[in-house]
Design a protein around this nucleic acid. Structure first.
Lengths: 211, 211
DNA sequence: TAGATTGTTAATCGATTAACAATC
DNA sequence: TAGATTGTTAATCGATTAACAATC
């Protein structure tokens, strides 16, 4: 279970997809699966799957394969889905409200505590069951509840300053939708910069590149 | 401008990010930039940038660097943003409506024609200026307007069948939000499978992996 | 036991980086 | 011209695949 050396970024980025597929298998009632069968299902090679899993210590069994239930638990633990992480959302505009209303935070390992917005008209309202509080109360909230992560759905502009400020107040990770890439790896703070348009542009390119 | 051999997936996935940064530079009034300066800004190496750009033919100038305006145009053309692609959206539920209301399709190279939904209560309504039509009229619409891409925001379940059906009706690319990975590369159809939760799970893992 | 499939080492492949001649 | 910076080839690095001994 202890990982040897550093696990490469390529492997880590495949973990959620593994987890998703294993959850599907479990839902389908499958109890065990070989690297070969999983590879076929996911469009990977069996070798790669075994290499990837072994970054975190072997949890298969020779001659048998992988127990689906156990694998799901192991992957969930590696991803930290059971670590009880907490998050808040900053910026309850269109995008922020869409996430509050629709995104299943708990399925991604986070308990969302509440949202914050500078617009006083939103204060006290709720979306998706999450209360919007005044930005004025943010610092006090951070000090008291120490959320692990912040979902940044504020407009771009002063995003870098706000991000630094959050980190200084103890925030340990950012899910950044501002459109402005943030890089706090130097501070040891992971950031996921989300750019939906990147994937749509890639599609645009690939459509043109069709033979 | 003609590309030699096949351009690797790694390069293609960096294109939107290049484009974004070059647009920012142009907005800042910068007229030329060297691979070195761009590398510093983006956290890459100058070597990689030159290699990447040269996949599509050199558009720099020795001793000078890259002209920002020209680079923006070249990257835009490579991405196909000026190719006049069209798209429709299928499934005007919460997620579909959030995209209709908020996502800037034209900035990603697509003119969104309209949306479709099976729910008759939505027929005729508009979101973000896009009309929702009855799914019953979809096939006729596809035959007449031949959109290049479909934004799939229907619930998962029969997504694979619907995807195949769309492709048979001439659709050339999918932006897939159903949560169920679609792989139509075998048919030569590019698909962008979007999983927002993957990035949130990765963040969850990385927060736990902090030293 | 025999068959199957893992864990792990070695080989291959591809992508990134370094170096430098070409040239603006 | 001299200086700067590209385009491109060669070297390095890392990730993927193949192979196989270990073992359930």
């Amino acid at each position: 279970m202890e990982r040897k050396h550093e696990v490469s970024k390529a492997v880590i980025q495949r973990l959620p997809r593994y987890y998703r597929n294993i959850c599907e298998l479990k839902a389908e009632g499958v109890q065990r699966i070989s690297s070969r069968a999983l590879a076929e299902r996911m469009g990977l090679t069996a070798s790669q799957i075994r290499q990837d899993f072994n970054c975190f210590g072997g949890f298969g069994q020779q001659g048998y394969g992988y127990n689906v239930e156990k694998l799901k638990d192991e992957l969930g633990t590696i991803l930290g889905l059971d670590a009880g992480r907490t998050a808040i959302l900053l910026g309850a505009g269109n995008l922020g409200r869409a996430l509050l209303n629709n995104f299943d935070f708990s399925a991604s390992g986070f308990r969302l505590l509440c949202a914050f917005d500078a617009n006083p008209e939103l204060t006290g309202k709720s979306f998706g069951g999450y209360e919007v509080r005044s930005s004025d109360t943010l610092d006090a909230f951070l000090a008291e509840h120490k959320p692990d992560a912040v979902v940044l759905t504020i407009p771009r502009g002063n995003a870098p300053e706000i991000a630094c400020d959050l980190v200084e107040h103890g925030v340990r990770g950012l899910w950044n939708f501002t459109g402005e890439d943030l890089h706090l790896e130097g501070l040891g703070i992971p950031v996921e910069n989300v750019h939906l348009s990147d994937s749509m542009m890639t599609l645009c390119h690939l459509i043109g590149a069709q033979h």
